[in-house]
Design a protein around this nucleic acid. Structure first.
Lengths: 216, 216
DNA sequence: GCAAGATACGAGCAATAGCTCGCATCCGAT
DNA sequence: ATCGGATGCGAGCTATTGCTCGTATCTTGC
């Protein structure tokens, strides 16, 4: 059983170039091992071996197994945030009809979600489902989601064809739907019958229909 | 590390009344312990203690830890199947407009999903996210989902106001959306701001909008 | 009341995990 | 060239886990 609460941050700052490489090698190895063997099955000895190092070296840079996991989570979350920021920064394609406009606005969110899952679905699953998530990482995650919901709500308010009476609620639904369905899609047998682009198209279609349906 | 592949079925059929009670007590204790401490953290000794028994007794009825998990999964899946069957058997409320009709048809699926998650979200999470899922249970799960998709597709074809060009694809989206969003909802901080009924209503609204949106 | 099987017990075994620590090796500043 | 700190090593300690097995207790049919 892992020793629970210690520093989850690296125990030592590398000062030589060599050490920095080592640090990265360990983290990369951890990603591969966790993805392949799961959290419980991915032992620190496996990770060290995969990195071509001894356990001792591993523990010079990471105080315990959970620290490795936390670092991977942080990296993945940061990458996700960067991904969506980049997508949003892209100039939106010229708008045509109203619906097309809304669809174009939603597309960056969908594409970002797809990108974030496509890279390494197995690792993603281990990080955000199987593994125990330390409180601070969970908080970071929720903050990220809250940010996305806020951004989505602002976007919905700016689009006149959005008929949802409560944009905040609708925004939560939009974000949750994108995240959840993408996640489910990549780990589903349905993937065989439907390629990623078609999936994204259909997802956008559903959201547009939901948001611009005649109000009640 | 758990011994991987052995019989996952109980090792001994109880013949006395007392034993049957014991079997049930063990399973109930396992549910509580797994829900509270996760899969890895829920040890067989914990479970035995929680059941007020010794480990030896536990192993008279379940050959190993994974068998307990498999049994819980089977029970949960069976309950889910029963739940949806019951909901579908209920006489649908009298139809009004077309949209209301479609909404009424979708409602049983949504309610069944909500029921299935509401009972014990923590256990549900452990069973279907954290824990290793044996192949046969996974297959059973996929079969259940495939069945739901088929039923949904049939339903969609029968509803004239459904504009989706590909009912099979739409059916997958409907089932995936219901399952995933419900799952996400029960384990989300958003739950505070939105009660279950309102959630179900909004979910149905989204699906109706998606399915009956003007075709493109 | 009694035998025989069913049930329950729990100390302890074997396996394996996370992690330490004393020592070897390497690198860079002087 | 050398010296000191940074880096790397890996046998092995400690803790814990899943699980066994010999024994004790209870139930039931006669």
């Amino acid at each position: 059983m892992p020793t629970a609460d210690r520093r989850l941050r690296p125990r030592k700052r590398p000062v030589q170039r060599r050490a920095e490489d080592t640090r990265d090698r360990i983290l990369a190895a951890a990603a591969r091992v966790f993805a392949a063997r799961g959290y419980a099955g991915g032992t620190t000895n496996h990770i060290a071996a995969e990195a071509g190092l001894s356990v001792g070296s591993l523990y010079q840079y990471y105080p315990n197994k959970d620290a490795l996991l936390a670092e991977l989570m942080r990296a993945h979350v940061a990458e996700g945030a960067a991904l969506i920021a980049r997508r949003l920064a892209e100039p939106p394609p010229a708008a045509a009809a109203d619906d097309a406009d809304l669809a174009a606005s939603l597309r960056p969110f969908v594409d970002a979600a797809i990108d974030n899952h496509r890279a390494d679905p197995a690792l993603h699953r281990v990080l955000f489902e199987e593994a125990p998530r330390p409180a601070d990482v969970l908080a970071e995650l929720h903050a990220l989601e809250a940010g996305a919901v806020t951004a989505a709500a602002r976007l919905l308010r700016a689009h006149p064809q959005v008929t949802a009476p409560d944009p905040d609620l609708a925004a939560w639904f939009v974000v949750a739907t994108i995240e959840s369905l993408t996640h489910r899609y990549v780990g589903s047998p349905a993937r065989g019958r439907l390629d990623l682009d078609a999936f994204g198209d259909e997802l956008v279609r559903m959201l547009v229909a939901y948001l611009s349906s005649p109000s009640r």
